[in-house]
Each structure stands twice: as structure tokens, then as C-alpha cells.
């Protein structure tokens, strides 16, 4: 299949800063990671890569993200070597696509997440990833800006952080199995030996809590 653009960042305006989860109660989510770099700085690094092809900026971005990306790929079942291959592919995509990153619309961590997720699908499952790219938006006919797009990014980040931190463990576990271990909701039900409806309702409750906290903020 032809490559799909990982940059589905368009219109994603909610966050301009990475979301800080610590302290958090979720199993597997660390509150001990070293401090995360400020997103303003990360954006500057990507701008330097795009505008100046700065290898120094790339190296700094690598140090900030590569250990996270490696951990992310390993959680889905890859060994260390395979994970580093995927990290290389993701970081090369970051280098090549840096000029498509729009800091008005996406946070760096969200943008890089979409890239490494799609590389993980490509390398671990050998599947193509049908995804959005900017030209898709030309097809939209009634794409009005909604009021909730105007919410400050940090507020949204904080509210998602709070909502995540406050999730019951059983709901957080389902999100982790989905995002980190590449499990569909049906596979999660099998793994946890739960009825499908139970897994669905846990996902729905978790998302309702997050959406609710965002819309509370908007009102």
C-alpha cells in the first residue's frame, strides 16, 4: 500500500502542551519519569528541524522521545531490537514530515503519538493504516469551527489528565490495553475473560468522564 500520512493533526487545537499525568494511580503509568520537556521548547525543536534541518534539534527531540517510543512499542509485544527499528522509522518520519507539523493545531506529543502508532501497525502487524491526511479535509462540506475548539489547550490537557487520574482502575486498565498493548475491545474482553458488554461499558464510562470534563470546561 502507499504510505499514509501520519499527520492527522489538522484541526486538533485543544492542546499545545503535553498532558502531565503524574501523579496517577494507573498501573503501568509512571509518576517517576523524569520531567517532561516543555511543549513550547518541543515545538521550537520541530520548527528548527523543518526550517533549518537542524540535526542538533533532532538529537534533542530524540533524547526526549526515543525512550518513550521504545517503551510504547515494547508494550505491544516487540523485543528491544524490533522496538528500536520502529523508533528509527518513527523518528525518520518526524524528520521528514516536520514541516507538516502545525503547532496551532496539535501538541508535539500527540503528533508523535500518531506517527509511532502508525509505524507500529506497519512494522509489528504488517498492515497498512488508513488514516487522514490534510488533503482529506478538502472533502468536507460543512466544517465549521465549533466553539469548543477555542478552549485553551492547557485547560483541555489538564482536564484530560484529571479525568484519567480519576478513572477507576478497571476503566484505566481497558484504555491501557487498547493504547499500549494493541488490543481491540473484543480482544480485551477475551483477555480479561469479561463479557463484551462489560468492556464496552467501561470504555464508554471512561470516555464520558473525559468528554464530560472537557464540556464542563466549555460551558
Amino acid at each position: 500500500m502507499p504510505g499514509y500520512a501520519e499527520s492527522n493533526a489538522d484541526r486538533f487545537r485543544q492542546t499545545r502542551k503535553p498532558v502531565h499525568l503524574a501523579p496517577i494511580m494507573m498501573r503501568g503509568l509512571s509518576s517517576q519519569s523524569r520531567p517532561r520537556p516543555d511543549d513550547v521548547h518541543l515545538v521550537a525543536l520541530i520548527t528548527a528541524i523543518a526550517a533549518e534541518r537542524s540535526r542538533a534539534a533532532f538529537a534533542e527531540l530524540f533524547r526526549a522521545f526515543a525512550p518513550r517510543l521504545k517503551a510504547y512499542v515494547m508494550r505491544a509485544g516487540a523485543d528491544g531490537r524490533m522496538a528500536e527499528d520502529v523508533v528509527q522509522e518513527a523518528m525518520i518520519a518526524v524528520w521528514r514530515k516536520a514541516d507538516s507539523f502545525n503547532p496551532e493545531k496539535a501538541s508535539v506529543s500527540t503528533w508523535i503519538f500518531t506517527i509511532v502508532r502508525n509505524k507500529r501497525i506497519d512494522y509489528l502487524r504488517r498492515e497498512a493504516r488508513p488514516d487522514l491526511k490534510p488533503s482529506d479535509f478538502l472533502h468536507l462540506e460543512n466544517d465549521q469551527t465549533h466553539a469548543d475548539d477555542e478552549i485553551d489547550g492547557q485547560q483541555t490537557g489538564d482536564s484530560i489528565q484529571e479525568a484519567l487520574a480519576g478513572l477507576p482502575l478497571e476503566q484505566a486498565q481497558v484504555l491501557e490495553l487498547a493504547y499500549f498493548e494493541d488490543k481491540s475491545h473484543r480482544e480485551i474482553a477475551e483477555q480479561l475473560n469479561l463479557p463484551l458488554g462489560t468492556v464496552k461499558s467501561r470504555i464508554r464510562l471512561a470516555l464520558a468522564r473525559m468528554k464530560g470534563s472537557i464540556s464542563d470546561m466549555a460551558s
Binding site: 492542546t15 490537557g157 484530560i160
Partner: peptide
């Protein structure tokens, strides 16, 4: 996009390797 946002947040919370 919200769900990608959640993915980005989770990525920043993972134990590094």
C-alpha cells in the same frame, strides 16, 4: 482527535525504556 490527544497523554506517561 480527542482520542489521539489521549494517546499523546498516555505516551508522555509511559515508563521509559
Amino acid at each position: 482527535e480527542q482520542m489521539n490527544h489521549l494517546g499523546g497523554a498516555l505516551l508522555m506517561s509511559i515508563d521509559e525504556e
